[in-house]
Every structure is written in structure tokens, then in C-alpha cells.
Amino acid sequence: MKVLLPEEQIDSFKARAAAIAHPHELIVDLLRAIQSHHGWVPDDGVLLTAETLGVLPIEVEEVATFYDKIFRRAVGRRVIHVCDSICCWSTGAEMIIAHLQQSLGIGLGETTADDAFTLLPTCCLGACGDAPAMMIGLTTHGRLTPEKIDETLQRERAAIAAEFAK
């Protein structure tokens, strides 16, 4: 099974938790670290977080399930968040979303069969001057056109193939 988080990172979180008065404040950091390493946060990730910080699993779960950018279900290698809020909507987000769905062959909330991409709608990304926009991983892509989306997806596919080859 894939490792949730390397031992040295777990130890580092344990040391930080021991040094502060309120270990709960590290819950989001640790969930994000697990997600960054493992891709998403399975039940074992919630338990690992609770154990590492010395808090209750329910205290972790009630935080994990609140945030839309903590994934409690499996996602593809790349998560595409496409903005559907007002500035992007007014500059053609509906067309952009349709193009993404068509290019990937999936609907919103779905993952491609090869586990490469998950497509999710999101609220405003703070890129309103560069609308329409999407975010892949933690990188924002603005002033989208169908051509620009095709180029970006192609680049990401090549990067994913290189990751698998390693």
C-alpha cells in the first residue's frame, strides 16, 4: 500500500505538536501534507493525523469534511478546479467547462478512467482579472480558451507519464 506520509515528516509533526499548547492547530497542515504525498486523505489518514497530534479521530474528521480542498475520496493524479463564479461565468465559463468535460470525457465530479484527472467545479479562485480561470493542483491558469486548455492538458499528460516512468 502507498505510504500516507514519510516517517520523518510524521516525526516532525509529532515534535511540533509536543512543542505547542494547542496541537489541534496542526490538523489542517497535517491533512494537507498527507494529501500532498498520498493524493487524498483516506480513513487511515484521519487516524494517522489523530494519532500523530494526540487528538480524537472525530476532531480530525469534522475538520477534514468541512473543507472542499481536502479530498476524502480518491482523486486522479491531477485535480482540475474550474471556476464557475460570476467573473468567469460572465466571460464564458460555461463553454470552458463544457470543453474540459468533452476533452477529458468525464462530467464534473468524475475521474478519468486512467486516473489522470479529476474535474471539480469551484468557487472564485481570485483570478477575476484573468477570467475564465482554472486551477490544476496549486497552479492557477487564466485567460482560458479551448486551445489553451488543450495545450495545458497535453503538458500535464506528458508530466504524468514521466512521473509513472520513474
Binding site: 463564479s85 460570476i86 472564485c124 481570485g126 477575476c128
Partner: peptide, 11 residues
Amino acid sequence: DEMEPGTYKDR
């Protein structure tokens, strides 16, 4: 937090 749609100044 700057998440109100239309707002991107702090960034």
C-alpha cells in the same frame, strides 16, 4: 481569505 467572487486585490 479573499474568496468573495470579483475580489483579487490582496493577491
